[in-house]
Structure formats: C-alpha cells, structure tokens
Write a protein that binds this DNA or RNA. Sequence first.
DNA 1: AGTACCAAGG
DNA 2: TTCACACTGTCCC
DNA 3: GACAGTGTGTCTCCTTGGTACTGA
Length: 543
Amino acid sequence: MPHQLPADYYLDNFRQLLDFVAERYWPLLNAREQGFHRRLTGMPREAQMLYVRLLSRRGEYFLQRKLTYPEIGNVPAAADILACNQLLERNPKLGLEQACALLTKADICHRLELSPSPGRGVLLQGLDSDPRGHPTIISRLLSGEVVYRVLDSDLFTTFKLCFFGNLRQDLTDFVLRDLGLFRYENYPLEQRQLLFYQRAQIDQHLQYYRSVEQLDAVLQSDTATILTLWQELPPMQADDPVLNRRLQRLGNTLARQLERLGAAQQALDIYRQLQQPPARERCARILAARGDLAGSLQLCKAMIAAPANEAERHFAAEFGYRQARKKGIDWPSPQRYQPPLQRLELKAAGIRVELASAHHLAADGDCHYVENSLLNGMLGLLIWDIVFAPVRGAFFNPFQAAPSDFYDPGFISRRGQLLQRRLSETTNPGAMAKIVLARFESKYGISNPLVNWSGLSETLLRQALERIPLDHWQVMLRRLLSDLKQHRSGMPDLVHFPSEGGYEWIEVKGPGDRLQKNQRRWLAFFATQSIPHRVLHVDWLAA
DNA sequence: AGTACCAAGG
DNA sequence: TTCACACTGTCCC
DNA sequence: GACAGTGTGTCTCCTTGGTACTGA
Ligand SMILES: [Mn+2]
Ligand SMILES: [Mn+2]
C-alpha cells in the first residue's frame, strides 16, 4: 500500500481502465470507441497524460495558461499531438457564457473596462445585453488567450460504464484504493461472464444515466416533463437485472412525484408497469383515494396472496382492513403487536436521546448504541467468504464492495447451500465467535455491504457473542438473510448487557417519536422468538 | 481581513 | 450517492 | 393513529489554494 504515488499515476490508472475494457469488451465496442482506444494508445505518453488531466477537470474548455503540469513538461506540444489525433480542439468557438466561465470576475471587468461593481451574476447578466455585441465581447475577453476544448470525453464515459458497471465510480477510486483509503476484498475476477454481453445493453445503461442526469431538474418540473423522461427511458429487460433494478427505482420516484402533482392516473400507469415495492402499495392508495374501493381491495388481496416482501404483506393486511371496515365489508382484522413499554425521565443534557438512555442503562452493566450495525455486522463477518464467493458474474472489476447481485433476491438462492451450511455448522457459540472474531481482525476496514466498521468494536462483538444465545443468533440472522434489502434496517437502537447477565434489545423513543413500521416488525419477530426486548419512552426533565 | 464554497489533486 | 431515522404538521376517526 | 414532508447525521478521503462576497 504505497502512500507515495508516482508522478504519472493517473495515466497508469487510466490505461488500466481502458485496456481492461478493450480486452474484454472489444467485440461490443463500436467503431468510434475502438478508434478512441487506438488513437489514445498510439500517442506519446505526455499527450496521453494531458488528455487524462483534462478529462479529470470540470467542463470541456480550458485556458492554456491555467494548465501547469510539471510532470508533463511541454503542455502546448502535448496539446498539438492531441489536436492531431482529434482529441482536442485549439481555440474553439465559444459562447459568451462559456468564455466568461473561463475567467475570473476581475479578468472580465478589466478586459471590458467595466467597473467591478456588483456581483458576478449581475455582471454576466448585463454583458448579455451589452451594446458591443457578443462576438466583440468574446474576442476581447479571450484576446491573447489560447483555449483548448477536450473532445470525445463521452467515449471515456462508455469505457467507465463498462469497467465499473455504473457511472458513480471513476478514476479517483483507483487513487483512493492506492492510498489505502478505500479497501476492497481481493476476490477472483470473472473472466467470462461480464456485466454486458450485448451492445444494446451498453446503450440502454448509457441512456438510463443520461436521464438520471436530468432527474433533479425534471422532478422540480411539471407532469409532462416527468412523463417525457419516463418515455425516453430504455424498456425493462428481463435479462438485465441490474438495469431492471435501476429502472424500477427510477419509475417509483417519478410516479411518486406525479402523485404529488395531482396526476394520479399517470402515476398509476407507471406504477402498474413496476413490480418493485412500493409500486403496488401506491396503486392501492390511489385507487382507494379515487373511490375505487373494489379495485383497491382486490389489489390488497393480490398482495397478501403473493407479497413482494413482508412490508407489502403488512400494508395490504392493514390498509385493506381499514378500507373494508369503512364500507362494512368483511376483512380479517390484522393483529398488531404491542411491545413492552417502559417510561423514563432523564435530565436534558443536550445529547441524543439514544446516547442519554444508553448512558443511563450503563449504570447496570454495559449498553451500546448499535442500531443496525451489530446484527448486520455479525452476519457480514460470519458469512464474509460467502458474500465474496466467486459466483458466476458476481465480480467483474476490482472495485466492488459487493457482488453485483447482492441487492436482488437471487443473491440468497444462488448461495443458498453455502449459507445453510454455514448457519447449520455454527452449532456452538465458540465456533461462531471464532469465525467472527478472526474475520474482524483479518478483514478490518475492507468494504462489505453488511459491515459498518465504525459501528463495531472487538469489545462489543465479544460481549454480544457471550451474552446472546446461539439459537437467538440463528433465528435473527436467518430472518435477516430471508430479505437482506428489507430486514437490514429497523433494528433497535440499543443492546443492553446487565451486570447479572443476559441481554435486551431496547428501542428508544423520545418525546413525539413513534415506532416505525420496520421497527415494529423486528420487535414482533423478537416476541415470537422470546428474544428480550423493550421500548423505552424517554421524557426530558427540565434542567 | 475574514468567510464560505468549491475545484483540483494525491 | 444515498439511506435510515427522527421530527413536524395535517387530517381523520 | 396514519400519512406526508422535511431535517439530520452519515455515507466513501483529506488538504490546499483560488474565488467571490461580506462587512469593517
Ligand atoms: Mn434509532
Ligand atoms: Mn429510536
């Protein structure tokens, strides 16, 4: 783990990425992308370095005088080579806004002989209607400057997508890894089953990301704009679960905003194309709100018959009951679990209510503010090797914190045997502790989707392993595994280890706070398994 | 002069 | 690139 | 009590230097 990088580290990283993709995806790359790779790799090192430097900066236009890269040496010479290879344009046509973006406010005022009066925004607005006209202003602004425009950066985007499988990671991930700031498990890389196996998939993912770029603006906009975005998205592909997941999530977001704008029918039209929650729940609500009770109840029944997850089943049972009761229709009444409740008054101390409660309980034994990190972390450590098992298509680049299928239900079924065996093999507390503590030590700091390292300590793990009986671990971890996505949250705030032994889960509620649905479900589960738990309702005593 | 913010970079 | 949780306000029974 | 919307801490780094803006 070298903490000192070579001067041209960024080119090495860039070439690793580019060559990795060229090697594996060559047949899927189009002529432009193949040509891009050939042009780049055919140039002298200095020119490649400058190109990478430009790509890593914001925007596509640059002033030559602002580019100071000692490790490149002669930047203008490198730029000439880039220009010969159509990777850079010298002195391109610039609009007024683009020209101004290159200069400081002081530069602009000086060159146009304006007083540096108001703010930059006002100044630029005034320039737009300046009597001298845009072309004159631009040429005065840029006289004596050499401007570069970097070309074909969109092709690099395609390479990044193929490499990472997403557009949220980029070259900085290489740097952070090499500096030891991000650590990834050392899993064997998939050689044959890559993320993409058809050209169309690449274009579909690119289209998805183009749409996502507009998402913020579109959500602020009107119904028609939102619908347009939805229609421009690539269609769902049954054989591309990653794309499917992204589209489902985006669809739910767009439809939800349509609801807020009062476009219930259009929202419904989108929700009906989605399988991923909360689509059906939203449909049931919309139908009920528009008075279609029969439709709403029918949907609730369908959800109960084949729930996408536990939350959907609970929703359908309760919502259906409330709707049905209004009209006197028969509907099984859902039973609601009431967890044991204790009241407590604490002196207002200006700290979070969970911490204040933990401190109070620590008068008798130890108490940790863990929320989800204990149970998730324990599972992550126990099944570490299974999470990173070389399942078909799971790992296709060295920068993955999780296998590519971690967030879909197939994750469990594809590793079902391994998981079952691990849990059933863990027949005594010593065996579990041995695995977990060894992993805690050997894997500390390595990214794992289940492990939040800052929420774990050896003390906590040891105490939890000692106090919580093995059969409790078994049932809690099995529940967690049964739906990782959903059960990963909602666990109680505190775990308390009293002096006289044993343990208890405690969910703290301050004034005005209520149990959330997923918290209620975990507590109800604890009750069915005789796992000790309690809700602690805290009121503040005036100081 | 003090600041808040952000781009660049390792 | 969020996500999970807490908090606030509204509406309805 | 149900629900929606908003706020908060946090996430996946940390430092540096430039810029624009503010108020003395
Ligand atoms: Mn909590
Ligand atoms: Mn709580």
